[in-house]
Computed example of a mutant assay.
Amino acid sequence: MAKRVASIDKKRCVACGVCENTCPLAAVKVHRGCYAVVEEAVCVGCGKCAQYCPAGCIEMRGRVAV
């Protein structure tokens, strides 16, 4: 499992869909046209969503061990 995972600030997200279209594993989805959410179990921590987010609302953080 990856050491990093994407984290989205829902208050700053503009639901443009760039992250959804950029994610190679479809781990990011725009929820009801309001904001994006990350399915952490699918996210591999590549950072492409954060790199291309025009709103700058996605950051990569360390994955919490369970």
Rank of each mutant, 00 (worst) to 15 (best):
C19N: 08
A65T: 15
V44Q: 01
G62L: 14
R61G: 04
K29S: 07
K3P: 06
Q51M: 07
R32V: 02
V44A: 01
C43I: 00
C13F: 12
G56Q: 06
M1I: 03
R61M: 04
G62P: 01
A26Y: 14
D9M: 11
A55N: 11
C53E: 11
C16F: 11
E20M: 09
R63E: 01
D9A: 13
E59I: 15
V37C: 05
P24I: 03
I8M: 15
C46G: 13
C23R: 07
G17C: 01
I8N: 12
G33F: 10
A26L: 06
A6Q: 03
V66H: 11
C43Q: 00
V30S: 12
V42F: 05
C13K: 13
C46A: 15
A15E: 07
I8W: 13
E40W: 01
G17D: 05
C46E: 10
C13D: 04
R63V: 02
A65L: 09
C16W: 09
E39K: 13
I58S: 11
V44C: 01
D9H: 14
A2K: 00
R63N: 09
A6L: 04
K10Y: 02
C57A: 09
M60W: 04
C34L: 08
A50C: 07
C57L: 03
V66R: 12
G17N: 01
A50D: 06
C46H: 09
C53F: 14
Y35T: 01
Y35F: 15
C34M: 10
V5H: 04
E40V: 02
D9R: 13
R32M: 01
K11E: 11
P54Q: 14
V44E: 10
K48A: 13
A15H: 05
V37L: 05
K48M: 08
D9W: 12
C34V: 08
I58R: 06
V18Q: 04
C53P: 04
V37S: 03
G47H: 14
V14L: 15
V37F: 02
R4C: 00
D9L: 06
R61N: 02
C53W: 09
E20S: 08
A55P: 12
A15D: 04
A36N: 02
C49P: 07
K3A: 12
C34Y: 07
A6M: 06
V5G: 13
C34H: 07
R61Q: 05
Q51G: 13
C53D: 10
N21Q: 07
H31S: 07
C19I: 11
C23V: 01
V38C: 02
R32F: 08
N21T: 00
K11D: 15
V30T: 03
A6D: 00
I58K: 08
C43V: 01
I58E: 01
